[in-house]
C-alpha cells in the first residue's frame, strides 16, 4: 500500500464516522426532549458535520482524483463507506442516542488530542479545531449519562439497556490493520492502544458516577472499516443520497 493510499483510507475512516453520526443526530432536530436540549444536540451535529466536511475534503485532496466532499459523501456506495457500525445504529430513544455519543466521544477526544502531534500537518490542523469541540461533546454526553444513570429508576434502566445493547459495537473503534500500522510508523497516526486506554478510563469513571454497570466484552461487531455494515446502513444512505443521485451532475 502506498503512503497516500493509506492516508486517504485513514482520513476517510475518520470522516465517515463523523458524517454518519451527524446524519443520525440530524434526525433529532426538531424532535428533542426539550427545546434547550434540541438546540444543544444540533450544535453537536453541526460540529460533527463540519469536521466530517474538513476530513472529506482533505481525503479528496490526498486521493488526487478530484473528488469533492460531496462526491465522497453522496456518490459512494455502501460497501465503500468505512465508518464503524456504532455510528450507524438507529437513534432509538434518547438514552440510546446519548450512550452512543458518549462511547464515541470518549474515543474521539483522545484520538483528536493525539492527532495534534501528527506529522501530517493537515490532520493536525483539523484535530486542533476538533479537540475543542470534542471536549465539550464528551462533557455533554457524560453529564447526561450520569443524569440518566443516577436519575430515576426508569432513566437508569433505559441507560443500562442502551449500554448493554450498544457495547458490542465498541470493539471496532480500536481495530487496526495495515493502514494504521503504516501511518503509526510514519508518525501520522497515534498508536490505538493509548486511545483505548484513555477511552476505557473515561468509560469506567463516568459509568461509576452514573451507577451504571460496564457490560462484559463479549462478541464484538466488526466489518465497518472494510465496508461491511449493518442492514440499517443502506436505508441511511438511501435517504441521505437520493436527491443528489436522482439528478446526476446537478449543482445545489
Amino acid at each position: 500500500m502506498s503512503m497516500s493510499n493509506a492516508l486517504f483510507t485513514y482520513t476517510l475512516r475518520r470522516a465517515d464516522d463523523l458524517l454518519i453520526l451527524s446524519q443520525r443526530l440530524g434526525e433529532w432536530c426538531g424532535h428533542g426532549p426539550v427545546l434547550e436540549e434540541d438546540i444543544a444536540l444540533t450544535n453537536r451535529t453541526l460540529d460533527h458535520l463540519g469536521e466530517a466536511r474538513n476530513l472529506l475534503t482533505y481525503a479528496g485532496q490526498v486521493e488526487g482524483k478530484g473528488r469533492s466532499e460531496d462526491d465522497l459523501a453522496y456518490l459512494r456506495m455502501e460497501r465503500e463507506f468505512t465508518n464503524v457500525k456504532l455510528v450507524e445504529t438507529p437513534n432509538g430513544n434518547y438514552a440510546h442516542t446519548l450512550v452512543r455519543s458518549f462511547l464515541f466521544d470518549a474515543y474521539h477526544l483522545p484520538l483528536m488530542q493525539a492527532l495534534l502531534e501528527s506529522k501530517d500537518e493537515q490532520l493536525a490542523a483539523i484535530a486542533g479545531k476538533a479537540v475543542k469541540e470534542a471536549t465539550y461533546h464528551l462533557r455533554h454526553s457524560s453529564e447526561w449519562l450520569i443524569r440518566f444513570g443516577d436519575g430515576t429508576e426508569e432513566s437508569h434502566q433505559r441507560a443500562q439497556a442502551a449500554l448493554d445493547a450498544i457495547w458490542t459495537y465498541t470493539g471496532e473503534l480500536f481495530e487496526t490493520d495495515a493502514v494504521d500500522a503504516e501511518l503509526v510508523k510514519a508518525g501520522i497516526a497515534p498508536d490505538i492502544a493509548s486511545i483505548q486506554e484513555a477511552w476505557s478510563k473515561t468509560v469506567d469513571a463516568v459509568l461509576a458516577e452514573a451507577t451504571l454497570k460496564r457490560p462484559e466484552d463479549g462478541f464484538m461487531a466488526t466489518g465497518g472499516r472494510n465496508g461491511l455494515h449493518t442492514e440499517q446502513m443502506g436505508f441511511l444512505l438511501a435517504e441521505m443520497q437520493h436527491v443528489t443521485r436522482a439528478y446526476p451532475g446537478a449543482t445545489w
Partner: peptide
C-alpha cells in the same frame, strides 16, 4: 430552563 446550575450554564452556551 434547566434542571440545575451547571445545565443552565451549558444550555446558555448552546
Amino acid at each position: 430552563h434547566a434542571a440545575d446550575a451547571q445545565m443552565a450554564i451549558e444550555n446558555a452556551r448552546d
